[in-house]
């Protein structure tokens, strides 16, 4: 099997990851590696993970998203997960997964606003902004 990768785009000081394929386990692990590498290389302050194309999120993918958010935080970047579909959200809640510590937004625009807001707050010295 060829080495698939999920593309990571740079948007100013943010990174945008658009997950567009059926996420299999290896791909999720690769994304985790690639993204942490890029946060450091691009000195990114924020990461947007757009999952609006994902038809399901199971506990494995959920854990991967949580891990990325935690790792990014250690690397001084905020993570916002955007575009989760209603059916996926309902299922995740039923599954028992609430993604604590992961910030969410309805779409990429709102996610960008959210990241900009928290970076401004940080610049004013308010420290880490809790949701």
């Amino acid at each position: 099997m060829t080495m698939e990768r999920i593309p990571i785009l740079k948007m100013g000081s943010f990174l945008l990851v658009t997950v567009q394929v059926d996420m299999h386990d290896r791909l999720a692990m690769t994304l985790q590696d690639d993204l942490t590498g890029r946060i450091v290389k691009d000195r990114a302050h924020g990461v947007l993970i757009d999952i609006s194309s994902l038809e399901i999120v199971d506990s494995f993918i959920g854990r991967m998203i949580g891990n990325i958010a935690s790792m990014a935080r250690v690397l001084d970047a905020e993570t916002v997960v955007v575009g989760m579909r209603p059916a996926v959200a309902i299922t995740l809640v039923e599954l028992g997964l609430s993604l604590p510590g992961v910030r969410t937004a309805l779409n990429v625009d709102k996610g960008v606003e959210m990241l900009k807001g928290s970076i401004e707050d940080r610049a004013r010295g308010n420290g880490h902004v809790a949701r």
Binding site: V81, V82, G83, M84, R85, P86, V88, A89, I90, L92, V93, E94, S98, L99, T104, A105, L106, N107, K110, G111
Partner: peptide, 12 residues
């Protein structure tokens, strides 16, 4: 509570 949690996951 589940509705509230699901909405939060979506960003509302």
């Amino acid at each position: 509570l589940k509705t509230v949690a699901a909405a939060r996951l979506m960003g509302a």
